[in-house]
């Protein structure tokens, strides 16, 4: 098992980690190709597009990767259908193991903010914190909005058999702003909260390794640990940390994603006057 500090608690299954890795790859590709298209009027945008073979190729990759993301989303919905405890439905949706937002999340988020200012003790979270739920459902919202508008823009002739052509103007703007919102949230807020804040620095590799540091989890999610111990499941969840080689791969992959995200963020801000709307 290794030293105490190397003991970890299993948190994500292999298929859940695979979903996340595929989401990272597709999201980053969409971010790069989309930003390349948006900034094609600037030398930076032209260079970014050239990485994908030019404007036309970047557009094609953007469309195909978008379709892949929609398929990934549908596969995730299918996965959820298998994971839901239908015998206890809908009560299972409101259990502590559920990602469905609950009134408790409002209380915990308020509690957390008060702790920021040193007014009260730190909140004691269960399995899912409010910011993790926000990130999860944010992806749902983002893929639905970006997916629908993206499909409209990818198949305009088909869509305009049903909807008037001016809806494509609206869809394009909704797609743009939602994409900026998604990238801004992931590159600034998600990266900071997930990896760069003191608690997780230099990187929270939980989503890659599948397990979280036990000590850190005890301090941030004591209710979950206590519940698992009470139910007699804690021992079965404890695992050793991954090998050095695997950890190196996780760090390289994770920091590559962060580097690409920050590159798009900084480049996007600097070159924003050159955007052709």
């Amino acid at each position: 098992m290794g030293t105490k500090t190397n003991i970890r608690i299993r948190r994500f299954s292999l298929i859940q980690r695979l979903f996340h890795v595929l989401l990272i790859i597709s999201f980053m590709t969409q971010g790069c190709t989309g930003v390349a298209r948006m900034y094609i009027g600037s030398p930076w945008g032209k260079w970014l597009a050239s990485v994908f073979g030019g404007y036309a190729n970047a557009t094609q990759i953007h469309k195909y990767m978008g379709l892949f993301m929609i398929c990934l989303f549908l596969a995730h919905i299918l996965y959820l259908c298998f994971k839901i405890d239908w015998r206890n439905f809908p009560r299972c949706l409101f259990s502590p193991d559920s990602l469905v937002p609950q009134p408790q999340d409002i209380f915990e988020s308020t509690h957390h903010v008060f702790w920021f200012f040193g007014l009260i003790k730190a909140p004691r979270f269960d399995r899912w914190t409010y910011w993790e739920k926000f990130d999860y459902w944010g992806v749902f919202w983002g893929i639905i909005v970006l997916g629908l508008t993206g499909l409209m823009l990818t198949f305009p002739l088909l869509v305009t058999r049903i909807l008037p052509g001016w809806t494509l103007n609206v869809a394009l703007w909704v797609h743009r702003i939602e994409a900026i919102l998604a990238m801004g949230h992931v590159f600034v807020i998600h990266f900071f909260v997930g990896h760069l804040r003191s608690h997780n620095f230099p990187m929270d590799r939980t989503m890659f390794e599948g397990s979280a540091d036990l000590d850190a989890t005890i301090h941030e999610k004591p209710f979950w640990i206590a519940r698992m111990a009470h139910e007699g499941k804690l021992e079965s969840l404890l695992v050793p940390q991954a090998s050095l080689l695997k950890r190196t791969v996780f760090y390289v992959f994770g920091y590559s994603a962060i580097a690409v995200g920050l590159f798009l963020l900084v480049g996007g801000i600097i070159n924003s006057p050159s955007i052709t709307w």
Binding site: L157, T160, G165, W166
Partner: peptide
């Protein structure tokens, strides 16, 4: 340029 465009499509601004 947009082969198969219909009258609805042409309302794109």
């Amino acid at each position: 340029c947009h082969e198969g465009a219909n009258a609805s499509y042409a309302t794109f601004v």
